[in-house]
């Protein structure tokens, strides 16, 4: 493995070994000194062309817990704002001897293009509506911690699936690990073509949640309302919101996930987020462990293993 651009292109074996590694990395977060010397002397760049707090901080902490040095480049205040192309920015950073690039971009495919021109590992931190591979891995890790294994579980993904890179990465990792995946949301943002991947697609929340072992609640991107693709917020909540009533359709021990940041009272109610079913904070913790595993996997070995 040279880069991490998409879970779609990983083998089941690669996915399983990354999840095992993540589980072992999670132990480091419980230590009194949560820093290991593994990536000492390595430098990574967080190249974020889209606003992000959690993912960027998570990658930064993951790198620091492994003793790598990190710099953050954001769109505003950087040479990007002065008109420098992405390629020039990346090439210049590469010339400064950085060992890895973490990239988030609003355009799908940018991480792959960067990976094609750079010799150093490129990690996709979310590109357009394509993929968010570390989110997919941390969701799979969280569900498997809660349930022991993913094989045979029913996982519902609720919301604007069409525009969601999280949903796409989730689908690939969950299917690879043997889960049954159901997508549910407003018909305008529910791609029926996904049925070809082997998932179930429905607009009926009750049908999607019935017997579900885990529910991934996608963030409602409010700007989609302006384009007319989703109904008003109250109507959305009425038909696809995760509330104490709708959650009762799932198995009594079903776990709730949300990639964050949450719109409380829209796609999910506060009391559900705060309930014992909610694993959203574990997702955040697992995110650091997963990113440590990915950084270690891509930067922690010498050449000659590919």
């Amino acid at each position: 493995m040279q880069d991490l651009v998409a879970l779609e292109s990983l083998s089941t074996q690669d996915i399983e070994s990354l999840l095992d590694l993540s589980q072992n990395m999670a132990e480091i977060l419980d230590r009194p000194i949560k820093k290991v010397p593994t990536l000492r002397g390595k430098a990574v760049v967080n190249l974020f062309f889209e606003p992000s707090t959690r993912t960027r901080n998570s990658f930064e902490l993951a790198a620091k817990y492994l003793s790598a040095d990190v710099i953050n480049v954001q769109q505003s205040g950087s040479s990007v704002e002065k008109g420098e192309t992405l390629w020039d920015t990346a090439r210049n950073l590469s010339e400064m001897a950085v060992d890895g690039v973490i990239v988030r971009h609003q355009v799908s495919g940018v991480p792959q293009q960067l990976a094609d021109i750079l010799d150093i590992p490129v990690i996709n931190a979310g590109d357009g509506s394509h993929e968010h591979p570390t989110q997919g891995l941390l969701d799979a890790l969280t569900i498997s911690q809660a349930k022991g294994s993913l094989a045979g579980l029913k996982v519902a993904i609720v919301g604007d699936v069409l525009h969601s890179r999280v949903a796409r990465s989730d689908i690939h990792v969950l299917l690879a690990l043997g889960a049954h995946v159901v997508l549910v949301g407003p018909p305008t943002v529910l791609p029926e073509s996904y049925e070809e991947l082997g998932v179930e697609v429905t607009t009926d929340l009750r049908r999607a949640l019935s017997d579900a072992d885990a529910i991934q609640v996608l963030r409602l991107q409010k700007e989609r309302q302006n384009s007319g693709e989703i109904p008003s917020l109250w109507e959305y909540r009425l038909r696809w919101g995760i509330t104490s009533q709708t959650v009762s359709w799932a198995k009594p021990d079903a776990v709730i996930l949300h990639p964050g940041p949450q719109n409380r009272g829209v796609e999910i109610d506060s009391d559900i987020l705060e309930s014992s079913r909610s694993w959203v904070l574990r997702q955040v913790r697992n995110g650091v462990a997963v990113r440590m595993a990915v950084l270690f996997r891509l930067l922690g070995g010498g050449r000659g293993d590919e």
Binding site: L21, Q23, E27, P37, T38, G301, D305
Partner: peptide, 24 residues
């Protein structure tokens, strides 16, 4: 598991780390 503390990480192929069960 001492995999994260090796002094030859840069000179050998990647190898995964196993579980460490240890508390302070």
């Amino acid at each position: 598991d001492i995999g994260l503390y090796r002094d030859d990480l840069a000179n050998r192929p990647f190898s995964p780390v196993k579980q460490t069960s240890l508390g302070s």
